[in-house]
């Protein structure tokens, strides 16, 4: 497998690069090879010239870093659109997906940051209003757990046609008024869930890799990972537990 990690020098908050480490080490332990290409800000991404990248990954970033990510990706907007239409796999965590929307509104009526404009949603950023919660829901039939901690929420232009990545069982969706979590457009997936998500959800990782053609990959230290996952699932489902904190 070949994974291109976009801008790991800034898109690395909340331990989320643990996702890539867990995927690549699990693949290798299962006898597959995994090449990770790290692409820096303001440099030419590998995806611009190659068609053999299995997964493009980007993690959570600071607000200043997010502006630099947009600047770095803008020259490749057409290529990104063409790849998304062609079914290229992307996985975005935290606020990374926001750069693919139309714009970020920094405060009520305040300045706007123009984004790539690939998907019809906008983002509201409220720096004095950080929200944190935990979340439980499903990817298809598979139970998923994760944390959320953010200053921002995305708002689709047309909620009716918006495709979510996960169904919410308990927790907040992509914004306080929208039930489900994440975005899925063909091979493009984005979610606010942190964890790192694939470490917290070995079952999800297995399923996601299988969708990409890597069947029967055993998550590293699967027994402990699944035990931790089951414990967390049970805790989050406890009736008395509120999900917001």
């Amino acid at each position: 497998m070949i994974i291109e990690v976009l801008f790991p020098e800034v898109c690395n908050l909340y331990g989320d690069l643990g996702n890539i480490e867990y995927i690549s080490r699990s693949l290798e332990a299962s006898g597959e090879t995994c090449e990770v290409i790290n692409t820096d800000l303001y440099t030419r991404p590998a995806f611009a010239d190659r068609d053999d990248i299995d997964l493009i990954y980007m993690g959570p970033v600071t607000e200043k870093g997010q502006v630099r990510v947009i600047e770095s990706l803008k020259p490749y907007k057409d290529r990104l659109m063409q790849m998304i239409e062609g079914g290229q796999r992307f996985f975005m965590t935290g606020n990374a997906m926001e750069v693919f929307g139309k714009y970020i509104e920094c405060e009520e009526g305040g300045p706007r940051i123009e984004c790539l404009g690939i998907f019809p949603f906008m983002t509201k950023q409220r720096m004095m209003n950080r929200t944190s919660s935990f979340w439980v829901g499903q990817y298809g039939e598979t139970d998923v757990v994760g944390y959320k901690s953010q200053f921002t929420h995305i708002y689709p232009e047309d909620t009716g046609s918006f495709k979510s990545l996960f169904k919410t069982e308990k927790g907040e969706g992509i914004n306080p008024g929208f039930k489900d979590e994440g975005i899925r457009e063909a091979g493009f997936a984005g979610t606010y869930l942190l964890g790192p998500l694939f470490v917290l959800n070995p079952v999800l990782m297995k399923e996601y890799l299988a969708e990409m053609g890597y069947k029967d990959i055993k998550p590293l230290y699967e027994e402990t990972a699944v035990e931790a996952y089951n414990k967390r699932l049970a805790e989050y489902r406890e009736p008395g537990r509120s999900y917001k904190y």
Binding site: Y14, G15, D16, G18, F134, Y147, L194, G195
Partner: peptide, 16 residues
């Protein structure tokens, strides 16, 4: 301090 009510984000383990 907080474990009874919620679970703090453990993502920090992967920065440590």
């Amino acid at each position: 301090k907080v474990a009874k009510n919620w679970s703090e984000n453990m993502g920090w383990l992967y920065d440590c």
